[in-house]
């Protein structure tokens, strides 16, 4: 697993997905909406394969790691029923500054990717999340529309 960095690069796969979905210089609310849509895609793809509990465990691990840099993410840990509390995550992101919202959201997504890739390898990780990434291409196209 790569070391966590406080400044994610857009070349990081999941940071790039978020950047494409949220667009450039978006406010915190737009970032929150974009990041929730990415998480919904991730859940849809992975929950079938590794189960709700598996996704929740990975998500919580990622929140724990990312909240070291962005402590406000800690409020979005998953609930006792193993469901991701995306509403709490959205509130947490929307309440931050635009810049911090984008950075913290990107950090969380990329951390999740790194944790998953460290377990099953980047190749299989990319394969499983390809739908999420391809979906983002589609979103970019839509975003590019006037």
């Amino acid at each position: 697993m790569r070391p966590l960095s406080s400044q994610r690069q857009h070349s990081d796969p999941m940071t790039a997905v978020l950047a494409r979905r949220s667009g450039v210089d978006s406010d915190a609310v737009h970032v929150a909406d974009a990041v929730i849509s990415v998480w919904q895609d991730i859940v849809a793809v992975l929950q079938t394969i590794i189960g709700r509990q598996g996704v929740a465990a990975l998500y919580d691990r990622s929140v724990s790691l990312a909240s070291g840099t962005y402590p406000w993410l800690a409020a979005s840990l998953s609930g006792p029923d193993n469901s991701l509390d995306l509403a709490a995550l959205r509130s947490a992101i929307a309440g931050r500054s635009n810049e911090e919202a984008a950075a913290g959201s990107g950090e969380l997504l990329q951390t999740f990717y790194d944790v998953l890739a460290s377990l099953i390898g980047p190749a299989l990780c990319d394969q499983l999340l390809s739908v999420v990434r391809e979906g983002s291409v589609h979103t970019v196209h839509e975003i590019a529309k006037p």
Binding site: I49, I120, G121
Partner: peptide
Amino acid sequence: LRYQQQFDFFDGQAINRSLRFIN
């Protein structure tokens, strides 16, 4: 998935194309 991909027969590209894992 972590352990099975160590074998030569494991083809990650086949997942969600030729085969699906369902929990």
